[in-house]
Nucleic acid binder design. Structure first.
Length: 812
RNA sequence: GCCGAAGUGGUGGAAUGGCAGACGCGACGGACUCAAAAUCCGUUGUUGGUGACAACGUGUGGGUUCAAGUCCCACCUUCGGCACCA
């Protein structure tokens, strides 16, 4: 079969018959199957796209044949850093390169022959999409969920630009090699932390991989403990968060993050330390959070010269700065208990600070640092209490004296959405000298991204240099004002796109409650595991925020989630241009066609695992389809006269068919495509055997079996199956057919093969009647000639029967 | 470093705590052929044995269990994420 021409033939037919367009009349049977949309950073689809979209399309087609009205849209996550970097390097405008890439990828995606509903396509860089991303920002602003604060960015002093983490190689700028500094900048944030608790709780109800839920859980990082106030000699209060208030009597010093706002004041109070403090703050600004939190990193810090008062003992304790404390976590300050915390212990040992033991191990010698629970000592009235009791009692006491309170803390931080970049959705905010921060009225959206912008680094956001963009009138007072020069993080675009697909052409609203409640949430969402904590958490947050604003009635965007694995280069490394191990799908698609390539991706890998690319088996898939084609072709030639008998041969073939259907139905649902294809192969082998062995066939029965084979195969090799279906003389699309269902009766066997074990070692196998009781089975097994000699002179102590599988006689 | 995974024949990979290696690839042997290709049939975890068979075998070391690739503990290696790549 000439796969290429067959594929274009059927793609044209599907297009014409609108086979892939969602039919709103059947919305009650809708199934929203969504693959993470493409990021058009390269000009072509790579193996990863095919691996994500091909098998998932087979899932979608399978569900369609089960009677669901499947909605499977596709679009492009088109804003982002790579296009801008490419522009800086080559001078090609991000809009131009992105549009060109999208055009190529669209063609390739169409040639894949997936059931994408192209009438619902979206591109996030187009006005009619980012207009609504800006609308979303304004809703969050109105709701008090968008706010501005200072935050650290990577700053390259030589390029005068903010760098993405990816652009910082080994603390240096990837472009010029200068040492990158962390610098404070005013940025917009979304208050995802307001939803920390709900985001955590609702994980339980999601049909997501357990590992993903666990990762999100740890990312949100709920911990319960206490906030405790230490009065500083400057009169300021240093508030610390601790999960171990039971160790409070062991506090030896207090540590502030180097970015803590109090640092400036402490410097004034102790000018003799100012130089050392400044040096340390500079040192800390060169490290990122990962380095700073590494337990392997040498503990460093500096004494500020200042002291604080312990809230319970009244003792003076020194105040230090150390970079193992992060300003972004908790309160940006910790109480250091050297005896009962590893990092504090290492720090105290290094700087010769006192170490006070206040917890004693129960039933053993206490070796410091002792970080587990124990009995309190040296803790005044709290001596003798155990961990939980002590934490509660001390929290209550601190609350009573006004020096602290119980507190739930989250590791989750608010979502920074400002980017000092060009290629993104402009933030719809105006800064007016008189009125301050003023949101752009919704009627004035979109705030258009101008084309003629200098996107090469100038020390400011690229848009800041575009006078036509920047200068505007204040929507509140009508006076002169400036636009916000920053653009939105592309994760904002992708946090709500699933809501846009069903209404991609709505020019009045981003989406409507009526349609969203009908079409969403997404029933099955398929994409890479690398999004476990960010994209997937942001989309959940936005969904909940929109619900609270009354725009939606559901709580979660993605009911079920599946991660495909990663296809690595043939060398086992992640594919990358620099490693030169990128495998292009194009040459395989050219040579074999979409169906064979997709089928190979399904068969050659475990879908959720992925693995190194190798094309050893792709020819065998082509051979397999040729075999199927021969079988179908031959069926047309079979003479009408044959037998109508149902003999053991027909029964066996029927068994094989229903066995395949049963397992494929289960395996496709579980995204286990390799085993599904294996079951189809087994069924084809059974058909082939029947065809070869049986001279006088039961023709009606056999032809039904062949038609069922085409139906079974259709979701996996859609173009090929359509062609065969037509070859068999059918007029309609095979995708108008129902997927075959298995008949449990066909799978009932009179006798089943059992493995027979004596003392857990396999001794023989035997056929045993399916209706026998455990006692009868034991009797039968014990009398088997291979088994009975082993039982002589011994007693059977126990007999384990696993129905339909195995018998284990324990003798002694 | 922290969080989360993975490790099974020559190879891709199967296996609700119940016969390890389904289904393929490759290899070997055979049929067909003047020959080759294609196709079809058979064998194929390792070691020993002519053989029936036996021993060993799922990264390493322990453990639980009648039974462990699967559960528990420790370790090794590889991969994903770590908040401005998306």
């Amino acid at each position: 079969m000439d796969m290429k021409s067959v594929e274009s033939k059927w793609q044209a037919k599907w297009e014409k018959s609108k086979l892939n367009v969602f039919n709103k009349k059947n919305a009650d049977k809708k199934l929203y199957v969504l693959e993470m949309f493409s990021y058009p950073s390269g000009a072509n689809l790579h193996v990863g796209h095919w691996y994500n979209y091909g098998p998932t399309d087979s899932y979608a087609r399978f569900k369609k044949m089960q009677g669901f009205e499947v909605f499977q849209p596709m679009g492009f996550d088109a804003f982002g850093l790579p296009a801008e970097n490419y522009a800086i390097k080559t001078g090609i405008h991000p809009k131009d390169s992105t549009e060109k890439n999208i055009a190529t990828m669209e063609t390739q995606l169409r040639n894949m022959g997936a059931m994408f509903d192209w009438t619902a396509e979206i591109k996030t860089c187009e006005e009619d999409y980012y207009k609504w991303t800006q609308w979303l920002f304004l809703q969050l602003y109105k709701k008090g969920l968008a706010y501005r604060k200072e935050a650290l960015v990577n700053w390259c002093p030589s390029c005068e630009t903010v760098l993405a983490n990816e652009q910082v190689i080994d603390t240096k700028c990837e472009r010029c090699g200068s040492v990158v500094h962390r610098k404070d900048m005013t940025q917009w944030f979304f208050k995802i932390t307001d939803y920390a608790e709900e985001l955590l709780e609702d994980l339980d109800g999601l049909d997501w991989p357990e590992k993903t839920k666990l990762m999100q859980k740890n990312w949100i990082g709920r911990s319960t403990g206490c906030e405790i106030e230490f009065e500083c000699e400057t009169g300021d209060t240093i508030t610390v968060f601790t999960t171990r208030p039971d160790t409070v009597f062991g506090v030896n010093y207090v540590v502030l993050a180097p970015e803590h706002p109090l640092v400036e004041k402490l410097k004034e109070a102790h000018p003799e330390q100012a130089e050392a403090i400044d040096a340390y703050v500079r040192y800390a600004a060169e490290a990122n959070d990962i380095e700073r939190l590494s337990t392997a990193r040498e503990k460093t810090g500096v004494y500020t010269g200042a002291y604080a008062i312990h809230p319970l003992t009244g003792k003076k304790i020194p105040v230090y700065l150390a970079d193992y404390v992060l300003y972004s976590y908790g309160t940006g300050a910790v109480m250091a208990v050297a005896a009962h915390d590893e990092r504090d212990y290492a720090f105290a040992t290094k700087y010769g600070l006192p170490i006070t033991q206040v917890i004693q191990k129960v039933g053993g010698e206490t070796v410091l640092p002792f970080c587990e629970d124990g009995i309190l000592v040296n803790s005044g009235e709290f001596d003798g209490l155990s961990g939980d009791e002590a934490r509660d009692a001390i929290a209550v006491h601190l609350t009573k004296i006004g020096k602290g309170c119980k507190k739930v803390n989250y590791r989750l931080r608010d979502w920074s959405v400002s980017r000092q970049r060009y290629w993104g959705a402009p933030i719809p905010i105006v800064h007016c000298e008189k009125c301050g921060v003023v949101p752009v009225p919704e009627k004035d959206l979109p705030v258009k991204l101008p084309y003629d912008v200098e996107f090469r680094p100038t020390g400011k956001s690229p848009l800041a240099s575009h006078d036509g963009f920047m200068n505007c009138t204040c929507p509140a007072c009508g006076g002169k004002a400036k636009r916000d020069p920053d653009t939105l993080d592309t994760f904002v675009c992708s946090s709500w796109y699933y809501l846009r697909y069903p209404e991609a052409n709505n020019d009045k609203h981003a989406f409507t409650k009526e349609v969203a409640d009908k079409m969403s949430p997404v029933d099955v969402y398929v994409g890479g595991a690398e999004h476990a904590c960010m994209h997937l958490l942001y989309a959940r947050f936005i969904t909940k925020a929109l619900r609270d604003m009354g725009y939606l009635s559901f709580d979660e965007p993605f009911k079920r989630l599946v991660h495909q694995g990663v296809i690595l280069g043939p060398d086992g490394n992640r594919m990358s241009k620099s490693k030169g191990n990128v495998v292009s799908p194009d040459k395989y698609v050219d040579e074999f066609g979409s169906d064979i390539f997709r089928l190979y991706l399904m068969f050659g890998f475990s879908y959720t695992e992925g693995g190194p690319w190798n094309d050893d088996g792709i020819k065998s898939i082509a051979r397999f389809l040729e075999k199927v084609e021969r079988l179908v072709q031959k069926t047309g030639e079979i003479e009408k006269e044959g037998s109508a008998e149902i003999t053991a041969d027909e029964k066996n073939l029927n068994y094989a068919k229903h066995y395949a259907i049963k397992n494929i139905t289960r395996d496709v649902e579980a995204f286990s495509f390799n085993t599904s294809v294996a079951r189809i192969m087994e069924y084809v082998n059974a058909l082939q055997k029947y065809d070869a062995d049986k001279e006088t066939k039961n023709v009606t029965f056999y032809k039904d079996c062949i038609d069922d084979l085409i139906r079974i195969l259709a979701p996996f090799a859609p173009h090929f199956a359509e062609e065969l279906w037509e070859m068999r003389g059918h007029k309609d699309s095979v995708f108008e057919e129902s997927y075959p269902e298995f008949d449990p009766q066909a799978l009932v066997k009179d006798e089943v093969e059992y493995a027979v074990q004596v003392n857990s070692k396999i001794k023989t196998k035997m056929m045993i009647g399916a209706s026998l009781s455990n006692e009868e089975i034991q009797e039968l097994v014990a009398s088997h000639p291979d088994v009975s000699p082993l039982l002589e002179g011994k007693t059977v102590k126990k007999c384990i029967v696993v129905k339909g599988r195995l018998v284990n006689l324990i003798v002694g």
